[in-house]
Simulated assay, not measured.
Amino acid sequence: MAITNAFISSSIIPRSKLSSSHSQISLFESITHISLIRDGFGFRQNKYLLRASIDSTKTVGSYSSSDQEADSVPMPIVLIDQDSDSDATIVQLSFGDRLGALIDTMKALKDLGLDVAKGTVTTEGSVIQTKFFITHLGTARKVEDPDMLERIRLTIINNLLKYHPESSERLAMGEAFGIKAPEKKLDVDIATHIHVKADGPKRSLLCIETADRPGLLLEIIKIMADINVNVESAEIDTEGLVAKDTFHVNYRGAALNSSLSQVLINCLRYYLRRPETDEDSY
């Protein structure tokens, strides 16, 4: 059953049932816990209620002040996976137990010229994970362009900040766009960790952990392109203030040798520690 122009309410599911097993709900199939109502749709887990208005796809959350005091702000995580599916880019979003079927996010992705081929909501313990399988609209091909991948990431984060403003205190983007900036800032000189590992004879695995900021993915890709390192695929993981990215890379169809690996590490470390560096300082 497609969730379009319908208003849906999930049954109130006790925490014991949600945490006892991995329960999965497809956004595009019949859902046993969902029934039609007239005044909107809700997803409730414990005290949190997710709603959409009758004439828009905006999703807003409401909870009492006592709930705010009792619940700490969970870790927001946005994961873009290019490895697990050969035909689609997988985007996974979680924010504790505060997210459900994100119709507003699906609309924002479609506004980028993308198609959400499939979507699922999975509950693991107390965390709700929403997963989208994304392709280019019309071509049904996965997203390869780094600029579009970064636009996807920032679109999802901006939506999270818009509809869950409390997330701003746990996100690096909250510094510029959120209501409340993170209290703890990362020292980028300390936070940056870069490793190159063997990944077979024809490619290497590049692992990067650094302070998140807008345009980070494009910056990393550009640095690699400048030294002719090719990116085959990637997993882009935004965890609050930190970006944890892995890239399958090669140099002219072969794995990186130790010398080139060190050059790559040095280049990335230099620029990732200096987000204010402009192109004229190369």
Rank of each mutant, 00 (worst) to 15 (best):
M1N: 11
A2D: 01
I3T: 12
T4A: 08
S11I: 13
I12L: 10
P14K: 10
K17R: 10
L18S: 07
L18V: 03
S20L: 05
Q24I: 11
Q24L: 08
Q24P: 01
I25Y: 13
S26Y: 14
L27W: 01
F28H: 13
E29L: 00
S30V: 03
S30K: 15
I31A: 06
D39K: 15
F41V: 00
R44A: 02
R44H: 09
Q45V: 06
Q45C: 04
Q45P: 01
N46K: 15
K47F: 06
D55S: 11
S56W: 12
K58V: 08
K58E: 12
G61A: 06
G61Y: 08
D71W: 09
P74Y: 10
P74M: 02
I77Y: 09
I77S: 03
I77G: 00
L79C: 01
I80Q: 12
S84E: 12
D85L: 13
S86H: 12
V91F: 05
S94P: 04
S94T: 11
G96A: 03
D97H: 15
D97M: 12
L99M: 06
G100S: 14
T105Y: 13
A108L: 13
A108E: 12
D111Y: 09
L112Y: 07
G113V: 01
K118H: 07
G119S: 04
G119E: 03
T120E: 08
T122L: 04
T123S: 07
S126I: 01
S126D: 04
T130A: 11
K131P: 00
F132V: 01
F132P: 02
F133D: 04
T135A: 03
T135D: 05
H136T: 03
L137P: 00
G138R: 12
G138V: 06
T139K: 14
A140Y: 10
V143N: 06
P146C: 08
E150R: 06
L154V: 10
T155A: 11
N158C: 01
N158K: 15
L161E: 11
K162I: 09
H164W: 15
E175A: 13
F177D: 04
I179A: 11
K180E: 08
E183F: 05
L186I: 10
V188S: 14
T192A: 10
I194G: 04
H195T: 08
V196H: 05
A198M: 02
D199T: 02
G200L: 01
L205C: 04
C207I: 15
I208K: 10
T210P: 07
A211W: 12
A211G: 11
L216S: 10
L217I: 04
L218D: 04
L218H: 09
E219N: 13
I220M: 09
I221D: 08
I223Q: 13
M224Y: 08
A225E: 07
D226K: 14
I227S: 03
V229F: 03
N230D: 09
E232G: 02
A234N: 11
E235D: 01
A243F: 09
A243S: 13
T246H: 09
T246Q: 12
T246R: 14
R252Q: 05
R252I: 00
G253R: 00
A255S: 14
N257F: 01
N257L: 00
N257P: 01
S258R: 14
Q262S: 08
L264M: 13
C267T: 02
R269K: 14
Y270G: 03
Y271M: 09
R273Y: 05
E276L: 13
E276F: 11
E276G: 04
T277V: 05
E279N: 12
D280T: 10
S281M: 15
